[in-house]
């Protein structure tokens, strides 16, 4: 029998000087109460944000607050089983939900001095650094697509986009870049 486990076909996206797709990653949605947050923090060795709309990065792992009982865990592609085992053991006796969404969405990177101006073509949030600082993350809208927007640097955003919306989002940003970048 053939082994196709490495034969991945992520959605194709357009790219330009400001926009590019990031590598596939392991992603989990962790849901549960405050005890789950504390236990996950201990197991992962990564801070799990309790404050709204904040992301913490530790090494190659990142944990994003999506809701008061919902976090998005992002780590390198190869770490899926390790994370599941780690959290599975640590949260065994705590009511929670851990769901693999690695393939549900892809990551796009928007970088450069015009990054926020470009996103402002479709995102109704105030993206000035004082209103949307580095490490802020949130679900929001980009034109007609829902995205998770995470500011990873002063001029650097990471977008988590459901895979079937990836083409739309990248085409939108490509079109919006005219006259901006």
């Amino acid at each position: 029998m053939r082994d196709l486990s490495a034969a991945r076909s992520p959605p194709l996206v357009s790219a330009n000087t400001t926009l590019r797709a990031l590598a596939p990653a392991t992603r989990y949605i962790l849901r549960g109460g405050p005890h789950v947050r504390a236990a996950a923090e201990q197991a992962l060795g990564t801070r799990v944000p309790g404050n709204a709309c904040r992301a913490f990065v530790s090494g190659e792992r990142a944990v994003l607050w999506l809701g008061p009982d919902e976090w998005l865990l992002i780590s390198p592609q190869a770490s899926a089983a390790a994370i599941a085992a780690l959290l599975g053991a640590a949260l065994k006796d705590l009511p929670h939900s851990l769901v693999d969404v690695s393939h549900r969405q892809i990551a796009l990177s928007v970088t450069g001095p015009k990054a926020s101006a470009l996103l402002a073509a479709g995102c109704p949030l105030d993206l000035e650094a004082d209103a949307f600082p580095v490490d802020m993350c949130t679900r929001t809208m980009l034109a007609k697509a829902e995205i998770v927007l995470w500011r990873t640097g002063t001029e650097e955003f990471r977008l988590e986009v459901w895979r079937s919306f990836a083409a739309y989002v990248s085409q939108f940003l490509d079109e919006a870049a005219r006259g901006i970048i």
Partner: peptide, 12 residues
Amino acid sequence: LEVWLTSTTEQW
């Protein structure tokens, strides 16, 4: 109720 929901439409 201690139960949580996650959309997996696009995961599979």
